[in-house]
C-alpha cells in the first residue's frame, strides 16, 4: 500500500466481498435446494432459506433408493470417480516421471523423435480426438472398465513437460557427484531426484486429481453400465429425464457431493496447489 486511503481500502473490501458473494452464490442456492422437497421447489415461490430435509435428501442420494436417480447410489459413483481420479493422477505421474527422467538424463537413439511424439499430445485435448480414441478403446475391448476410463487419459504430456522443465534445472554437478559416489541410475532417481521433486510432484498430483475427477465427456462415452458411472456424468444422466420434472432436490445434493472432494483437495493443499499452478505453467 503506497498511501493509506480509507475510502480506497473500503472500496477494495467491498469489491472483494461482492466477488466472494458472486462466486459463492450458486453454492448457496444449491445447498438451499438440497434441503427442500421436490414439491417445495416447483410450487412457484422459490425458497431462499434452507428447509429441514437436509439429512433426508442426502441419505436418499447416498443410498440411491429414490425416483430421481440413475439406478446406482451416489456412493458408488463417488467411488468410481475416486478410482478414476487416482488412477489418472498416479498413472500420469509415474509414467511421466520415467519419461522425463529418460529424456533429460539419458542419451539414446531416436531420443528427439520420442520427445516430439510425446509433446505433440500437449496440444490436443481429449475432446478433439474423442471419436478415434473411442474406436481404439472399443477395439481393445476396454469399454465399461476402469482401465478404459483411465488409461486413454494418461496419454497426455502436461506432467511430463513440467517434470522435464524441473529436471533441467538440476545442476549437472549433482549428477556427476552421484555417479562418482557410485550411484546407479535407479539409485539416483530414487535417492536424489524424487526427494528433490517432492513439492512439484505434490502440486502436480493436486492438479491431475482435479483433472481426473472432473472428466465428463470421456466417462459419458465409454460407460454404458451404470456401475461404472462417475459422479460428474451421473448428474447429466439425472438431468436427462425427457419431459419429466427434474428431481432438483436430488440433483443438487449430488452436485454438492460431486464438487466436495476436488474442492476439499484444493483448499487443503492450497499453498502447494497455487505454487504448482502459477510457477509451472509459466
Amino acid at each position: 500500500m503506497v498511501e493509506n486511503r480509507f475510502w480506497l481500502n473500503l472500496l477494495s473490501h467491498l469489491v472483494l466481498g461482492l466477488g466472494v458473494l458472486l462466486v459463492a452464490f450458486p453454492i448457496w442456492i444449491a445447498f438451499v435446494a438440497s434441503t427442500h422437497s421436490a414439491q417445495g421447489l416447483v410450487s412457484g415461490t422459490i425458497p431462499f432459506w434452507p428447509g429441514d430435509l437436509f439429512l433426508e435428501n442426502f441419505s436418499q442420494v447416498l443410498s440411491g433408493g429414490n425416483d430421481g436417480s440413475v439406478g446406482v447410489s451416489a456412493m458408488l459413483m463417488l467411488f468410481n470417480s475416486l478410482v478414476m481420479a487416482l488412477g489418472i493422477s498416479i498413472g500420469k505421474i509415474v509414467i511421466s516421471l520415467m519419461a522425463a527422467y529418460a529424456i533429460v538424463f539419458f542419451r539414446f537413439p531416436l531420443r528427439s523423435v520420442c520427445f516430439w511424439i510425446i509433446f505433440m499430445t500437449l496440444m490436443l485435448p481429449v475432446e478433439v480426438r474423442i471419436m478415434p480414441t473411442f474406436q481404439v478403446v472399443a477395439n481393445l475391448n476396454l469399454l465399461d472398465s476402469y482401465t478404459g476410463l483411465t488409461l486413454p487419459l494418461i496419454a497426455s504430456a502436461t506432467a511430463t513437460f513440467l517434470l522435464r522443465q524441473f529436471y533441467m534445472t538440476i545442476p549437472p554437478e549433482l549428477v556427476e557427484a552421484a555417479r562418482v559416489d557410485g550411484a546407479g541410475p535407479v539409485k539416483f532417481l530414487f535417492d536424489i531426484l524424487l526427494p528433490l521433486s517432492r513439492t512439484n510432484l505434490a502440486a502436480l498430483f493436486v492438479i491431475m486429481f482435479i483433472y481426473g475427477w472432473n472428466q465428463y465427456l470421456w466417462p459419458l462415452l465409454v460407460t454404458t453400465d451404470e456401475h461404472y458411472y462417475t459422479i460428474v456424468m451421473g448428474i447429466q444422466r439425472m438431468l436427462a429425464v425427457g419431459d419429466d420434472e427434474v428431481a432438483w432436490n436430488i440433483v443438487m445434493p449430488t452436485t454438492l457431493l460431486a464438487m466436495l472432494p476436488p474442492v476439499g483437495v484444493v483448499l487443503m493443499m492450497q499453498r502447494l496447489f497455487v505454487k504448482g499452478l502459477v510457477e509451472t505453467e509459466k
Binding site: L16, G19, V20, V23, A24, F25, P26, I27, I29, A30, A33, L41, V42, I46, I210, W213, N214, Y216, V232, M233, I235, Q236, L239, W248, V251, M252, T255, A258, M259, P262, V263, V265, V266, L267, Q270, V274
Partner: peptide, 29 residues
C-alpha cells in the same frame, strides 16, 4: 479472500453448468 476465491477452479465444468442451469431455470430458478 484468496482462499474464498480459488475453489471454483476445482468444480467440474459440467457441474458448474448444472449450478447455473438451476439458477436460471425458467420454472424453478
Amino acid at each position: 479472500y484468496k482462499t474464498l476465491l480459488i475453489w471454483p477452479y476445482a468444480v467440474a465444468p459440467a457441474v458448474a453448468g448444472v449450478l447455473w442451469l438451476f439458477m436460471f431455470h425458467p420454472t424453478v430458478g
